[in-house]
């Protein structure tokens, strides 16, 4: 029932803007033979550097229409331990050759645009303010059995039946149980410290408001155990008062 809803809401991925430090090989001339020789010399000098190093091949300094053998160039780089991630080029011939090899192309240097538009947003997004959209209260009329989880996102939860031990109730807002609460109830889970929990019979395994919780061990010592109560947060402490 609610397990499926919960799975839908958990995001599978996140897009982040990032600044990567990456090696750029700027090719000045289209001379693969000499490139091979000169790269070999460099590898001898610093073999660790050429160990599967990710690379951006900058070809924008090459003369236009130079008839570059792109596959050979990529293979050459790979031979020396340089793995080409992307090209930097503006020449349409090169861009076309790159797309045939399924290699991304970055715009020539000087242009500060990034390929990934979404990354242009500030990398650390502040938490969105609570949505002002009205979400109607979720009402459940059947008993909530052990092992079931009900999450009322963006609002309150009302349960008009018993909540069995082993069941979990979660809500961004308040939780009302018009029956015995024998499972767990977590209100204000997005941080709303004003959330409250109401129930007709306090027999819960655990209650929590905005992360401040009490387990049955503590709740049982309260004189209002098994009574009709409301629970709210005062400061850091969960207060239990008679309904």
């Amino acid at each position: 029932m609610s397990q499926a809803d919960l799975n839908d809401q958990i995001p599978v991925f996140q897009l982040k803007g990032s600044m990567l430090a990456i090696t750029v090989l700027e090719l000045a001339q289209n001379d693969l033979e000499r490139l091979d020789q000169q790269l070999a010399v460099k590898v001898e000098q610093a073999p660790d550097f050429f160990n599967n190093t990710p690379l951006v091949l900058a070809l924008d300094k090459l003369p236009a229409e130079c008839d570059l053998d792109l596959p050979a160039l990529i293979a050459l780089c790979r031979k020396h331990g340089l793995r080409t991630l992307a090209l930097r080029a503006g020449d349409p011939q090169i861009v076309e050759a790159a797309s045939r090899l399924d290699l991304p192309v970055l715009p020539p240097s000087g242009a500060r645009e990034r390929k990934l538009d979404i990354a242009s947003k500030a990398p650390a997004e502040p938490a969105k303010p609570a949505e002002p959209v009205y979400r109607p209260t979720r009402v459940v009329t059947t008993p909530i059995r052990g092992g079931q989880q009900v999450y009322a996102q963006g609002g309150d939860l009302i349960v008009l039946a018993a909540v069995s031990p082993g069941a979990e109730l979660l809500a961004d807002g308040n939780i009302h149980v018009y029956g015995p609460l024998r499972g767990r109830a977590l209100a204000g889970i997005k941080g709303d410290t004003n959330a409250r929990i109401f129930c007709q019979q306090l027999a819960a395994e655990m209650v929590s408001i905005a992360g401040h919780y009490k387990v049955a061990e503590d709740l049982r010592r309260d004189p209002l155990w098994t009574e009709a109560v409301q629970m709210k947060l005062s400061g850091d402490v969960l207060n239990i008062t008679r309904l």
Binding site: M1, R145, G147, Q148, P165, G166, A167
Partner: peptide, 13 residues
């Protein structure tokens, strides 16, 4: 009783 309760939940879902 607890296991039956769990089973009832599964029957319903």
């Amino acid at each position: 009783v607890r296991d039956s309760d769990r089973m009832l939940g599964l029957l319903a879902s």
